[in-house]
Design a protein around this nucleic acid. Sequence first.
DNA 1: CCTATAATTAGTAAAATTATCATTTGAACT
DNA 2: AGTTCAAATGATAATTTTACTAATTATAGG
Lengths: 142, 142
Amino acid sequence: MQLEQVLKQLKEKGHKLTPQRQSILKILMMSKVPMTALEVRQKVQKSHPRVSLNTVYLNLLMLTQMGLVIQTHLQNRTASRFEYQAEGSHHHHAICLSCGKSICLDHVPEPKAGKPEEDPGFQILGHTLEFYGYCSSCKKAS
Amino acid sequence: MQLEQVLKQLKEKGHKLTPQRQSILKILMMSKVPMTALEVRQKVQKSHPRVSLNTVYLNLLMLTQMGLVIQTHLQNRTASRFEYQAEGSHHHHAICLSCGKSICLDHVPEPKAGKPEEDPGFQILGHTLEFYGYCSSCKKAS
DNA sequence: CCTATAATTAGTAAAATTATCATTTGAACT
DNA sequence: AGTTCAAATGATAATTTTACTAATTATAGG
């Protein structure tokens, strides 16, 4: 999806197109690797030196809730990473419990048996599958 | 799996069976709902008043890496929760982006279309699937 | 039973993430 | 252009999680 379309989509949902927000979005859309909140902030600071980390987190949350960004948790290791999710580019992750490395998977391997092609030696121990959205009571409220 | 068997399994992997660790494990195995680290600590403190939160986190991490515990992240909301994963009881979660409620799923719904039976009104917006284990280089090192 | 060793613990500090709130600002409407 | 209002920002504090280290302890072996 192009930037213009995404901005339009945000506006339709009642979100304001602040300069900081647009900068964050552009940075995520252009990055080829998932980024931490701190990395995003450092890039944003080039054009908006006073941007707060809080603003970055709030925008990452909003974009996640819009389904435009995916957050990957590194299974109890350091900072989580955020990644723009272009339409049709949905994919999953294999995360090393030892070094925290996150490997993008184009295909879903057989749980507990598969070997991701990106790292054929990867030993899968388990997996988590989390769906997110809105429960019935929250949907009513909004 | 029974407590005794789990303890045996830990021992085989070279882990020591400290009283704190056994307490944490028992609490997780008996709990019917996923617990936060703080909640676990509060229960442990009844028998070990001086237990540190750090110890709780370290044990939760170790148990996660053993595949005995599942950590659910509440998509950017407050504390994550930990749940003992009995053999054959593997299941997934639906998490509300608004209130953070976590619903356990016995079956995997159709992504972006399904309605979990536990909350037929739940609106699924997206999902994350993360495999964890050990990458080839870390496997060699150990 | 005693010793040696590595794992674990508790304490502390640091880092990551979320909450709160006063102020600012984009957007819609005059 | 001016006004209004809700959303967003930045500052700060609080909470959650991780990192580091010295002291303790479970366990294996003598």
